[in-house]
């Protein structure tokens, strides 16, 4: 029984890593209608900037805060000077551009900081807390708490604020949004900036565990995309729940379903996606997109 609960707790903390990236993906999608494949790469770049500041003697909290601000600016700049050219055209082109951006950022990180694994200090201690025979590191708890807070903030942003409403309006129909007086271009920049800032937080949370390398989030991105599809592109709460589900189910399937084992557990989220998409194409928590003809 203790092993069973431990596996669930382990799954939740792995799932939180996926959730961090998934939230940034949702934010960009809500604000611009795109899936940004470079989200993970931008988070890695942010983590490197924090790491660089640390190596110059800047305290950890300040370094991470600075990287969040820098990332906001970087996200806005990428939108203004790169993505802007593709937003009006075919969305497929824009998505391919983000994949190109991912490759480019990974290469630049490798060139600047080498591909060696760099140690990134954690905001939270690794000491374990034990209750009911289950041990959880403070780092896992801290990561999970931050993710939940960010998730609630995002939910509140989209559902309860004028900015959130404006971002959504711009994403759904930029033309009508412009006609009703919204500063569409600035809102797009803000959307990308916020997503990049969120990515920076995600990068700082997971870098201590995965150790900082240019490709640190490549595998996590695949799981994050699975969580986004599973939870629904429009729901921050949905993707976090989906990411946790993926983490937990993966572990349980590996241990308790002999046929799956550790070799096939990677398939679990994708089987889940398949089933969910057949039954509920908008994702578990997503809203149906209705297009008027």
């Amino acid at each position: 029984m203790a092993t069973f609960i431990q596996l669930i707790v382990d799954g939740l903390s792995t799932g939180s890593v996926y959730a961090a990236i998934a939230l940034a993906l949702v934010l960009v999608h809500q604000a611009t209608g795109l899936i940004n494949f470079a989200q993970g790469g931008m988070a890695v770049l942010a983590a490197y900037s924090a790491w660089w500041l640390l190596s110059r003697g800047v305290p950890l909290v300040l370094a991470i805060s600075a990287s969040v601000l820098l990332s906001f600016a970087f996200g806005a700049v990428v939108e203004r000077w790169l993505m802007r050219r593709f937003e009006r055209g075919d969305p497929d082109t824009a998505v391919v551009v983000t994949i190109g951006l991912l490759t480019l950022i990974t290469g630049v990180c490798g060139w600047l900081f080498t591909y060696n694994n760099q140690q990134f200090p954690s905001l939270f201690s690794l000491d374990a807390v034990t209750f009911l025979g289950v041990s959880v590191s403070q780092r896992s708890i801290g990561t999970t708490v931050v993710i939940v807070v960010v998730m609630l903030l995002l939910q509140a942003l989209f559902a309860g604020t004028k900015l959130g409403l404006a971002l959504r309006a711009v994403a759904i129909n930029p033309q009508s949004a412009a006609f009703s007086g919204l500063p569409v271009e600035r809102l797009l920049m803000v959307g990308w900036g916020l997503a990049a800032a969120l990515g920076a937080i995600a990068g700082a949370l997971v870098a201590p565990q995965l150790t900082l390398t240019p490709g640190m989030l490549d595998n996590a991105l695949v799981y994050a995309l699975a969580a986004v599809i599973l939870g629904g592109l429009s729901s921050p709460i949905g993707v976090v729940v989906a990411a946790w589900m993926i983490g937990v189910l993966e572990n349980l399937a590996a241990v308790y379903v002999p046929l799956i084992g550790y070799d096939l557990k990677v398939a679990v989220p994708f089987i889940l996606i398949f089933v969910v998409l057949v039954v509920r194409p908008q994702g578990l928590f997503g809203r149906k997109t209705v297009v008027r003809v």
């Binding site: 792995t14 996590a220 990677v266």
Partner: peptide, 13 residues
């Protein structure tokens, strides 16, 4: 698998 991001579950088991 070489593509895994975590072996926590294996260590737990």
């Amino acid at each position: 698998e070489a593509t895994d991001t975590s072996v926590d579950a294996q260590i737990t088991q």
